[in-house]
Design a protein around this nucleic acid. Structure first.
Lengths: 218, 218
DNA sequence: ATGGAATTTCTTGTATACAAGATGTTTGAC
DNA sequence: GTCAAACATCTTGTATACAAGAAATTCCAT
């Protein structure tokens, strides 16, 4: 890009954080970034504030802004909150979802399964994402949808570890189908509870992985 | 203040929006604000970005930032989302709340009732706020708590209209007590459902008010 | 040699100058 | 008189200069 907009810079920085180029506690030097993106400090500072607002970094006055990767505790809380948000979306969607959206969910599930069969990790994640996004949308509540999307996006880098558990995918697919069935029959409670557990399990699995890594490191 | 920090400016602007000095669609002129706060445009721009990030204003490129008061539809969605957040907090709090916090909830209820009896509107709102904040905190989930606080704060100016309904307060208090009882006995479902309805009713009432005002205006 | 204080350097925060786009007005042609 | 185009003005966006506080280094005293 010739003269990147602050919002583009913020997105690029986000990508750098997600891709692991910046780790927890790293300071984002304004001058360095200004040179890197070929702009002055002003738009860089705007982009940094955007990062701070999104919770990806924290600002210490007169010190600078620092990358703030969530620790194990906060991550668990994020997964738990995600589970609650999704449950809420499912609950509301149960009485609002359109037939077309139900078909979309089933289509997404088909693609998920196909991707699993083909060993296509990217395909799986994309289809899985579509599945969840459709439910957010069908909550019929743009505020809730936006919050769910935000947290979902934030947790994206941490969901990948799920792959490590053999057999989890099959169960995951079964849960998806239970959710669709509940939504089709308008059963709000089952849809909500199933989806809540479905997401919460990801948090559990992640927690187990963290624990095992921690143990292995010692 | 001598040289207000951008964050202080943002808070002040927020107050001006909540107090009604700025209405929907008003443009926040950088130069005017700079003179008003006795600083240059730079810290003003930072404060404005903060407002945009919090959803209170929207930025149109090369046009400026404009106050964006939520319309009736978005307000209903915000109340609905708030109800879901509170239900989630209550659900989690049911198995995590401390005895001390339960006492705090009952104390808050006592103050609520006393304020109602004394016709002390401010006292009522403060005690009511404490009640809800304790539940957020006792969810044991800082992420969820932060989201709930954010939305609660955002809806603050719109909750006041509740006063208009006679008899609502007594029912509201009864709902509070049902919630406390459910939390004390660890009944997550009842706590969640009661609190959800408790908040959702506020949205309903608000909607009715909006509709009546709309009708009256024609 | 080590602890501490002063100074130097480096970084953030603020002000101002400049660039570029958007809006509003004036002027001219039909 | 009306429409359109050019121009003037105003506002946002960016760069840079300057101020102020924090960290690091150096220097001195013990």
């Amino acid at each position: 890009m010739d003269r990147p907009h602050p919002i583009e810079i913020a997105d690029a920085l986000e990508e750098l954080v997600f891709s692991g180029e910046y780790g927890d506690g790293d300071r984002l030097d304004e001058i360095t970034l200004a040179q890197r993106f070929g702009v002055s400090r002003t738009p860089i500072r705007e982009a940094l504030q955007r990062l701070v607002a999104s919770g990806l970094a924290e600002q210490r006055p007169r010190r600078g802004v620092f990358i703030r990767q969530p620790g194990p505790v906060e991550l668990m809380q994020m997964f738990e909150a995600m589970a609650e948000f999704e449950a809420s979306c499912a609950r509301l969607a149960a009485s609002r979802i359109s037939d077309a959206a139900l078909d979309d969910l089933e289509e997404a599930n088909r693609r998920c399964k196909a991707a699993v069969a083909a060993g296509d990790a990217d395909g799986y994640y994309h289809a899985n994402e579509v599945f969840h996004h459709v439910i957010y949308r069908q909550s019929g509540n743009a505020v809730l949808e936006a919050e769910a999307l935000r947290l979902h996006r934030r947790l994206k880098p941490f969901r990948r570890v799920q792959l490590r558990w053999r057999g989890r995918m099959a169960q995951s697919m079964a849960e998806h189908e239970t959710v669709v069935a509940a939504l089709r029959s308008g059963d709000a409670a089952i849809a909500a509870d199933t989806l809540r557990d479905h997401v919460a399990v990801q948090g559990e699995k992640f927690h187990q992985l963290m624990a095992s890594l921690r143990t292995a490191a010692q």
